[in-house]
Design a protein around this nucleic acid. Structure first.
Lengths: 194, 194
DNA sequence: TACCTTAGAGAACGCACGTTCTCAGCGCAA
DNA sequence: TTGCGCTGAGAACGTGCGTTCTCTAAGGTA
């Protein structure tokens, strides 16, 4: 890793934490400079603008999220357990003291109306997650319709936990996921009785 | 309605639309003045500060939301159908051309970190919704655990629809709600088979 | 040592915006 | 008619912040 890459990485990590904790617009570039210990001139040489830094932060957060989900999932043996591991992952995350909701949803609410690039980045991370879920659902043999339903549960759990300030949404979403999985697998191919 | 009340109402409605469409921080007080046709001096006499205006807007949006849900629900005969009517309500909302997600979730993402008052207002509207759902669930005879699960589906559908830009999350969440309702009512009191 | 390039620290600039102030006009009591 | 309080329109003020500029110091090369 070159010096530039190391500095870039450091700035992105620091900015990510600040943006997530306080909100993007509430954090000035000077706060990033102070926290990263990197001169403004250097930051602007590396990123060009705050908007570019924001996108770099979103990309970084996306890779961290993907790695975290994958790490939690690979400890489970079956696809069904890997799906449920996602909700255990959420549970642990919600209990972290500085949990403040999904950074992508927050960024979308804050900047999505004004920035198509932010919207695009957020949309990309959500669709990556949905595709991951779709693969797991396919492995279980359940109908493909199940995947977006589980994704909606995961999204809802994140906002509910953030706003309520409690982690219980993870457990509730997990229970719902179990019900949906059981219904999809046990009754696969059946019509819902009237 | 006094003159003051009418002007307050006008300013709140206009600000609500601007805040929702462009984001709260992206809308200056001067834009509110121009759109409402009310002098800044008058706005500040009525609200005191932008922060107060934001809270008034959130309160207004909460009452509109509650009324909208209630209007859609009262057309249904049974508690089960009133629950499902919520998802039909979401479906219609998601198809509106200027739909941009849940205004409360967006406001939380944008301002929650900096403003406890905003967090409190958002939390209040979510808990009002959860209580409403809990009453409907109780009417169906399903276990109380079902209510937060349905709430999570509704939340997740809103963020998913906002970010994806498509309304299909409403249909998917509704299908999941049907499965959860059926499972809760058919198997009420049972243990999940191993 | 003398010179050139580069980087760091912080001041400076320009702009946007929340809030307040100024001033002109208008209704109204005597 | 003559003041007087109120209101509207917009200028003005202070501040914060994204971005750029300036100055100084250091490091490498003849």
């Amino acid at each position: 890793m070159t010096q530039d890459e190391a500095t870039r990485d450091r700035v992105v990590r620091v900015a990510d934490e600040l943006f997530y904790t306080r909100g993007v617009q509430a954090v000035g570039m000077d706060a990033v400079r102070a926290a990263a210990g990197v001169p403004l001139k250097r930051i602007y040489a590396l990123f060009g603008s705050k908007d570019e830094l924001i996108l770099a932060v979103l990309r970084h957060r996306m890779s961290v999220w993907d790695a975290g989900i994958a790490a939690e999932a690979e400890r489970a043996a079956t696809a069904r357990d890997r799906i449920l591991a996602i909700f255990d992952f959420l549970d642990a995350w919600f209990r972290e003291p500085d949990f403040r909701g999904c950074g992508f949803i927050n960024a979308f609410g804050e900047l999505g109306a004004a920035s198509p690039a932010v919207t695009e980045a957020v949309r990309e991370q959500k669709s990556t997650f949905q595709e991951y879920l779709a693969r797991l659902v396919a492995e279980t043999g359940a109908p493909a319709d199940l995947a977006p339903q589980l994704a909606i549960l995961a999204e809802g759990a994140q906002t509910t936990a953030a706003i309520s300030g409690t982690p219980e949404a993870a457990r509730q979403a997990r229970a719902a996921a179990v019900t949906l999985l059981d219904a999809a697998i046990h009754h696969a191919g059946d019509l819902v009785p009237g």
